[in-house]
Simulated scan of single mutants.
Amino acid sequence: MPMTLTLAALDSRLSAPTRQLTAPGPDDAALLRILRTAARVPDHGKRVPFRFLRIAGDARIALADAVIARLLEREANPGDGVIEKLRLRFTAPPLTIAVVAKLGEDEKIPASERFSTASCVCLLLLQAAQAEGYGAQWLTGWPCYDRPLLESVLGLSTDEQLVGTVAMGTCPVAVPDRERPDPRALLQDWNPA
């Protein structure tokens, strides 16, 4: 494939709002194809410091209920809008992939590098899902950092961290692009003192 087509595909990446994602989502074959691409990340030391949790079918509702229950433990009156938005995060898309970083002891590779690898997985999940014709959105927020939720509900070990959830499905409406930064404004030349 010519490089210009590859760059055009990368430049067309958009996040599709989770609340707009509907069925169908990726089937098993499409999901494995997407995951194969997502696993092609820079990985110092070849540690494969990530894993995936698939949230589909009735598990979507169960997770939404558990996350809302945890929210109500954390906050006295979060508001109906906050609760509904949280519910839709897991129930609207037909498929969500949770990306888990494995950050246990490692004498050679710092945890920050391994977390960066897992973060790259999330970006490639977005791009691979879009390449397969699906909309996707990477979400973080407090559920990624709440240890009782991560350990009791999602089953993460104490040395794992949720990097985010990537919702996938069909987006029935065109997603408008947003203004992107000008790379010229971000680039500086380094000169030795």
Rank of each mutant, 00 (worst) to 15 (best):
Q161C: 15
W142A: 09
Y145H: 14
E132M: 09
A118S: 14
E151R: 10
P172T: 05
A136K: 03
L149T: 06
L139M: 13
S116V: 08
S157C: 09
A129L: 05
L154S: 07
A167Y: 04
S112N: 15
W142G: 12
A131Q: 07
L126Q: 02
E179S: 08
L149F: 15
P176N: 08
G133D: 06
V121W: 00
Q161F: 15
L125D: 00
S116P: 02
P183E: 08
T117L: 10
G133V: 09
R178M: 13
S112L: 15
A118R: 03
A131I: 03
M168Y: 02
R178D: 12
P172Q: 05
C144S: 14
G135S: 12
Y145S: 06
L156S: 09
P183L: 15
G104E: 03
A98F: 07
P148K: 02
R114L: 10
A185H: 14
G135H: 05
Q161P: 09
A131K: 01
K108A: 11
F115V: 04
C120K: 00
G133C: 11
E105W: 13
G141D: 04
T170M: 07
A128M: 02
T140Y: 03
A118W: 00
P181G: 08
C171A: 03
D182S: 14
M168S: 03
W138E: 09
E113H: 14
L139K: 02
S112H: 15
F115D: 03
Q137M: 09
E132Y: 07
S157I: 03
V173Q: 10
V175L: 03
L154R: 09
K102I: 15
Q130N: 05
A131D: 05
V173Y: 07
P110F: 08
Q137V: 14
L154M: 12
D182G: 13
A128Q: 01
E160Q: 11
A128I: 04
S119R: 00
L156V: 07
Q161R: 14
P143R: 02
G155T: 09
C122H: 01
V166D: 00
L150P: 07
V173P: 07
T117S: 14
E105S: 13
V173S: 07
S116L: 13
R114G: 05
A101V: 12
E113Q: 10
Q137E: 10
D146H: 06
A131T: 07
A129F: 11
D182M: 11
F115C: 04
E179R: 13
G141R: 12
T140H: 04
R180H: 08
L103P: 09
E132C: 08
A101H: 00
A128L: 05
E113A: 11
M168L: 12
P143S: 04
P172C: 08
G141H: 06
S152W: 02
S116I: 06
I109Q: 11
L126N: 00
L139Q: 08
P148G: 03
V175T: 11
L139T: 09
A185L: 15
R180S: 13
A111T: 02
L103E: 06
P181K: 09
P143Y: 02
T170G: 12
A118M: 07
I109H: 11
L150V: 10
V173D: 09
L156A: 08
T140C: 10
C144W: 09
V163R: 01
R180T: 11
S157Y: 10
V99G: 01
L149P: 11
E179Y: 12
E107S: 15
A118E: 05
V121H: 01
T140I: 05
